Simulated assay, not measured.
Amino acid sequence: MSRFRRCRQPGCHAMVQFPNHYCTQHYEHEAEYLANRQRWARSHDKQYQHKYNHVTRYRNDVKSEQYNFYRTTTWVRLRQQALDRDHYVCQYCGQPNSKTVDHIVPIEYDKQLKDHLDNLATICRKCHRLKTDWERSWYGTGKGNQLKNVPEILEVSKIKKLFPKTE
């Protein structure tokens, strides 16, 4: 079965069969569009991947080791156990169908807790963003920050109370 999409010409609502981007009336723009797309992809691919991998993700040996942990079978098994235990419900706000598992105490702060099921909680995207911001201020984690000597908080309910208010 053929797939269709709208013509990319602004204001034109004609349907176009894949892989084309323009209808027969505006087809003269097709070659220019494809050339621009290829030019953009060539100029951004290596730059973006290099920045993401070498500046953000693998900026030093410690971060590289942390991210490699997420590729192990230990992590896959622990993650699934945490999701099953929490029934895919965010432990911070109660939103169902949450599929992210987060370390309550970040690996960056305490490496010994990285493979403990008690240090994992199911979390939704919104709460994960809030918790990451909180971790940066409380523990001093994140790029460019200095780790602080503060007590670890392992209770989700206590951490939730310390989140910044968003309303």
Rank of each mutant, 00 (worst) to 15 (best):
R3L: 15
R6T: 13
C7Y: 03
C7T: 02
C7L: 04
C7V: 04
R8T: 00
Q9M: 07
G11T: 13
C12A: 01
C12P: 05
H21L: 06
Y22T: 11
T24Y: 10
Y27F: 13
E28I: 12
H29N: 14
E30R: 06
E32P: 09
L34D: 11
A35M: 11
N36P: 01
N36T: 07
Q38A: 11
Q38E: 15
W40F: 15
H44P: 03
D45F: 13
K46A: 14
Q49L: 07
K51A: 15
H54S: 14
H54C: 13
V55Y: 10
T56N: 13
Y58A: 10
R59D: 06
R59W: 09
N60T: 07
V62Y: 12
V62D: 13
S64V: 09
N68D: 15
N68P: 08
F69G: 03
Y70V: 04
Y70L: 10
R71G: 09
T72N: 01
T72I: 02
T73R: 13
T73S: 15
T73W: 09
T74K: 09
T74F: 02
V76P: 00
R77K: 13
R77G: 08
Q80F: 09
L83K: 08
D84N: 15
D84E: 15
Y88T: 00
V89K: 00
V89R: 04
C90E: 09
Y92M: 08
Y92V: 11
Y92I: 11
P96D: 11
N97G: 05
S98N: 01
H103N: 00
P106E: 01
I107V: 11
E108K: 00
E108V: 02
D110V: 06
K111H: 15
Q112P: 03
L113W: 13
K114P: 03
D118A: 06
A121W: 02
T122K: 05
I123Q: 06
R125Q: 10
R125M: 07
R125H: 09
H128W: 00
W134F: 05
R136P: 00
R136C: 10
G140Q: 07
T141I: 14
G142K: 04
G142C: 03
K143D: 10
N145C: 10
L147G: 10
K148M: 02
V150T: 03
P151Q: 00
P151W: 02
E152W: 00
E152M: 06
I153L: 04
E155P: 00
S157I: 11
K158D: 06
L162M: 03
L162E: 04
L162G: 01
E167L: 14
E167N: 12
